Amino acid sequence: MPEWLTTDYSGRERIQGGIVDIGVFEGVVLSPELFSPANDAGFEADQNSVVLEWGWSGTQPDGVESYTLEYRINEDDPVSVEDPGSFSYTLTGLNPNSVVQWRVAGVDASGNQSWSQTFYFWISRGHPLYVTPNGTGNGSSWNDAMNLQSALDEARRGDAIWVAAGTYYPTNTSERYSRFKLKEQVKLFGGFAGGESTLAERNWSLNETILSGNIGDKESKTDNSELVVEAIGTSANPLTEETVLDGFIIEDGYGNQTSGIFMEDASIIVRNVWIRDNYSSTAGGAVRSSYGSNPKFGNVLFTNNISMDNGGRFIYPELPNFIIVHGLGIMHDGRGLLLWEMLPLLIQFPGIIIRVLIVMISPIR
Rank of each mutant, 00 (worst) to 15 (best):
R288Y: 05
W102D: 14
G85C: 01
Y120K: 13
D153F: 06
W54D: 01
L346V: 15
G292A: 15
A193S: 13
D223V: 11
G126H: 02
A266M: 00
G233T: 14
F119L: 02
N48P: 12
T234Y: 01
M342E: 15
P350A: 05
L199F: 06
Y120D: 11
G126A: 03
L30Y: 08
G166T: 09
D83C: 09
V273Y: 11
E341M: 13
D40H: 15
T136R: 07
R202F: 06
D277G: 03
S307I: 03
K218V: 08
Y291E: 11
V81S: 00
G327K: 03
R288E: 02
A105D: 08
I268T: 12
T240E: 09
F180L: 06
K183H: 14
A160W: 14
D277T: 10
A236N: 08
T171A: 06
L357T: 13
S293F: 00
N143E: 13
D246N: 05
S281G: 04
L5H: 11
V104S: 12
M1K: 15
L245V: 13
N256S: 07
V356P: 15
V186H: 05
V229S: 10
D144S: 04
D40N: 15
Q47K: 12
A155N: 10
Y120C: 06
T240G: 06
E3P: 02
S150Y: 09
S124I: 00
T136C: 01
N299L: 14
A45T: 01
G255F: 00
D265S: 14
T7P: 11
D77Y: 11
F43D: 00
F180G: 05
I22F: 15
R14F: 13
A41I: 01
A155K: 09
A45C: 08
F35C: 01
A155Y: 03
